[in-house]
Design a protein around this nucleic acid. Structure first.
Lengths: 341, 341
DNA sequence: GGCTGGCACTCGTATGCATCGAGTGCCAAG
DNA sequence: CTTGGCACTCGATGCATACGAGTGCCAGCC
């Protein structure tokens, strides 16, 4: 195993590199950190750390930079989560409190997170399947045209147009609406399919076609990968990435535009379960375009169960403690706000 | 005025520069274009064009590049709108036809436009104030909690939560809903404020507070700058801008994140009225960050009146005829689709 | 055995300098 | 008005040199 001091050296390397963006050498290290040993000793430690794969040199006779494995160790063992300063906390509260709408909450959150971390922020809308039904509404827009509106306990509203196979009377509509609501309100969306399974059977034959259509569309909105929505922001922060721009920034922007990829990314973070924070570093991200980025994600929700994720995407060389602190704090506030609404 | 040939020279310069991204000299010009004159003559013409401010040289003894004024002349007088190839038209149709939802239409449109023009695409949602009301719905979520849902003829759905000052009975609710709809359905949102002005008066005193609240929130959703929404995509295309990245791309990304700025940008394009296409080149864009970009925008709508704009943002050095063709074609298809729904 | 100072070596970066060539402006002739 | 010729400009390219931060290794010391 690595001695205490070697870990200290790694920590110092990570911190310096994150600060300066430049490979850090043994001399500079001893000057900036009170390690109590000479550069030569540090060099020996570095040699070991390099052999173990925690650091690397871009070219012979240059300083060292942490590898993904090095960051991993740093995050797991050496770094805590830096709590936010109280002005920062107040800023979060002020920024988020004015929101009137779920859209507004999500929009503000993504801007806030981007600004706070100076990185790219990603916020997922509360997942339908993990929310409960607050209300289901059916509106008649035209004789054979309905609109289905789903409202979740988190304030999310989803609507779908429905073209009916046959005109649908107002009383039938009221009937369907009532029966639908009595079955599903207060239940989890994930359970809705079972709950409405046999609903069509109890209707007049002439209405059965329309009812089935409505139910089909209702179930369709719950299909995963369709029901998930997310918002990103702060892409301008990508320009602070490094000097070797085009090559670095391009694939990241491309990946960010592929919402499916991002959703999978956040989804993977799920294993850690509940509201746990996940950090995926560099090549740990399956998507190739994100191989030089790290993703810090955490679940949020009104209760103690996560209804969605939010997080940031930034360079592997990022301030992990600070970023994790900001992400966690924002997630908590958002959870509070959802609980209030 | 400029002679025919000088205009031809300008056109050639613009075309070559757009193609190569490099300053174009007199010799290269005569080689690639059949101007029928010698390089020396072209040089004289160039000197005139430069004096008039249509072209400039980055440094002495380099080729010329068009100025904003040069592009302006090119767009106004020298370039047509290039119609799309029929495979391209088919691609548009295929891509857009699967859409089920207004969100879906807008999302697909932005992706399509970005892909087609290889630039950043911006699509505005149909403006509420320029749409007509299809339906207004009021749902009771809790005793003193309502949800207001607005549905436009273009398929846009907007919802707002309402906290009532007092509980609101079901019959009152049905009453309000009915009266509201009878007044506004089929009318333009812009006229809604007048149409509902005195609606509260006709209610029981005890309900008047809630009715006023509902109406206030209804009007609030129509306030400009609040009601406008837009989506952008294709930001990865920014990386094809030039070689001097960070400086170029940064302010553009920042500007794109300021939706307010973008809305103003598209709004300015309005002067030309109706469905006319607007091209704003370089410094013609008020926002500083977009001084080195051009914006091609056009209105779209189901009828012959525009309900919103869409367009692209790209480098001033862009293929104007092709971009204009693509933008116009996409706008037309989107209009068709809206008309069908 | 681990720490330290010394030393030779590596290699990327910065600097100066000469060269090259695309492009220009100007002019005199057609 | 057009054209060919010509001197000039100036950024880009290539190269050799110097510089310096940083390394690895080794012998000596605690």
């Amino acid at each position: 195993m690595l001695s205490e001091r070697r870990l200290e050296v790694l920590r110092a390397i990570v911190q310096d590199y994150v600060g300066t963006e430049e490979p850090v050498g043994s001399k500079a290290l001893t000057e900036r950190h009170k390690l109590g040993v000479s550069p030569a000793t540090v060099r020996n430690d570095m040699a070991v750390l390099e052999e173990e794969g925690f650091i690397a040199q871009p070219h012979t006779s240059a300083g060292r930079i942490p590898t993904d494995k090095g960051y991993r160790l740093f995050v797991d063992k050496l770094a805590g989560v830096k709590p936010l300063s109280s002005p920062e906390r107040r800023a979060i509260q002020n920024f988020l409190d004015g929101a009137v709408d779920l859209d507004d909450v999500v929009g503000r959150t993504v801007r806030l997170l981007a600004q706070l971390t100076r990185q790219v922020a990603v916020v997922q809308y509360p997942s339908l399947t993990r929310s409960t039904v607050r209300h289901v509404e059916l509106l008649s827009l035209a004789p054979a045209r309905l609109m289905l509106v789903l409202i979740t306990d988190t304030g999310r509203v989803e609507q779908r147009m429905i073209d009916c196979p046959a005109p649908f009377g107002d009383t039938s509509l009221a009937d369907l609406r009532a029966r639908l609501n009595s079955r599903v309100v207060g239940r989890r969306f994930a359970d809705v399919p079972q709950l409405v399974q046999d609903l069509a059977d109890s209707f007049d034959p002439e209405d059965r076609g329309t009812v089935s259509t409505v139910l089909a569309i209702l179930l369709e909105t719950l299909v995963e990968e369709t029901e998930e929505r997310l918002v990103i922001g702060g892409t301008a922060n990508l320009t602070r990435f490094g000097h070797d721009f085009p090559l670095t920034i391009r694939p990241v922007l491309e990946a960010l535009e592929e919402h499916v990829v991002l959703l999978k990314l956040l989804g993977e973070a799920e294993e850690s379960g509940g509201m746990g924070m996940t950090v995926r570093i560099g090549h740990e991200n399956a998507h190739e375009g994100l191989n030089s980025t790290s993703v810090v994600a955490v679940g949020y929700g009104s209760g103690d169960e996560a209804v969605a994720k939010l997080g940031v995407v930034g360079p592997t060389r990022m301030d992990y403690p600070g970023t994790m602190g900001a992400v966690r704090a924002v997630a908590r506030y958002v959870g509070q706000i959802l609980a209030e609404s």
